[in-house]
């Protein structure tokens, strides 16, 4: 398959050039803002998809790790003056550690009750940060001191710099997913996702595999939390542990194509573009319109195309462009 391999590299190179040039071509700050949102939620979706997509552990509590990442780096920066670049990694570590007890509790349940337990853990963390004002400012939250241009403190004057940071995060997430996808752990995850009992019966150590992938997923989600706080210069429990982060992480993956490398990215592009268009047509005057449309898209995907947009595109491709060889 030499040619198809070359084609792949060609497409990747074109994609890389476009992605690198994009912020130079787009000058409107509204548009760059949307691009950053797309990259950020793609990245969160990619992190969710590792566990939710491949192993089908459908969490609706990833805001827990988003918030832990955000709070760790912010506390380190505001109280001790430590750079968010270090805080970001520290936040990832904190999220990994937190995922151990949370996973220990939640993985006792399967299916929908796992989902409910994950919602509850994110809510508990939010309540804790709301209640204990001594170490994290309580409900008012805090603003991040603006240092102007300070790349070492993850603060930039140009919005395009934020774009490159989050693009880098997304590439790391995609690379990790790609590595996992083609390794034995990827196959283990898919086996667990298909049928956990059967996977265990053939020798997959399901609890260990789930714990490990949950740690990786939590780590990556926490990085997104740090980035987001630095980007909006503000943190409070309601934004850091927002349920809508958990929802969007799952939504973009499902709409794009659950358990696929590019699914979360494609899903985010569709959902965020829709939301931006709605916003520019209707303004933000009509509350609830964005999530109304999201939920309709989600229902349509589940009822008609459970494999998401990627599945839909492959079906169309095989139907009209290149016939799939008949399965044996």
């Amino acid at each position: 398959m030499q040619t198809s391999g070359n084609m792949k590299w060609l497409w990747l190179a074109i994609g890389a050039v476009v992605m690198l040039a994009l912020p130079q071509l787009v000058t409107s700050s509204f548009a760059i803002d949307i691009l950053i949102r797309i990259l950020l939620f793609s990245f969160i979706g990619v992190a969710w998809n590792l566990m939710g997509g491949y192993a089908k552990q459908l969490s609706l509590g990833h805001a827990a790790y988003f918030g832990l990442g955000a709070y760790t780096s912010t506390i380190m920066q505001v109280n001790y003056g430590i750079s968010p670049w270090i805080g970001m990694i520290a936040g990832g570590m904190v999220a990994m550690l937190a995922s151990l007890p949370i996973g220990w509790l939640c993985f006792r349940l399967r299916g929908p009750y796992f989902t409910i337990a994950t919602i509850a853990t994110a809510q508990v963390l939010m309540l804790i940060f709301l209640k204990f004002r001594d170490f994290a400012w309580g409900a008012e939250g805090t603003t991040i001191p603006n240092l102007g241009s300070a790349p070492l403190m993850m603060q930039f004057e140009e919005k395009s710099s934020y774009y490159y940071v989050v693009l880098g995060l997304l590439l790391v997430g995609l690379w990790i997913t790609h590595q996992i996808e083609k390794s034995w752990i990827g196959y283990y995850l898919v086996a667990i996702g298909e049928d956990e009992d059967a996977a265990e019966a053939i020798g997959v150590n399901a609890p260990k595999v789930k714990r490990d992938i949950y740690m990786i997923s939590a780590f990556l989600t926490a990085l997104a939390g740090t980035f987001y706080t630095q980007y909006i210069y503000f943190i409070d429990p309601a934004t850091a542990f927002s349920f809508s982060v958990s929802i969007e992480a799952a939504l973009v993956s499902i709409v794009g194509g659950i358990g696929t490398l590019w699914g979360p990215v494609i899903g985010t592009v569709l959902l965020e573009t829709t939301s931006a268009l709605l916003q520019s047509w209707l303004g933000s005057s009509v509350g609830g319109i964005q999530l109304t449309v999201y939920s309709l898209i989600l229902m349509a995907v589940i009822l008609w195309r459970p494999t998401g947009l990627i599945g839909f595109a492959t079906d169309v491709y095989h139907r009209y462009v290149r016939r799939k060889p008949a399965r044996a």
Binding site: K56, L58, L60, G111, P112, T115, I247, A250, I254, I258, G288, I289, Q290, L291, T292, Y294, S295, L296, L298, M299, I302, L303, P306
Partner: peptide, 19 residues
């Protein structure tokens, strides 16, 4: 398959709430 069941009723919840 759990996924469609969980996310269908979840989508219904989001839809009714935001409507």
């Amino acid at each position: 398959n759990d996924m469609p069941q969980i996310f269908l009723t979840f989508a219904l919840s989001l839809l009714l709430l935001n409507l």
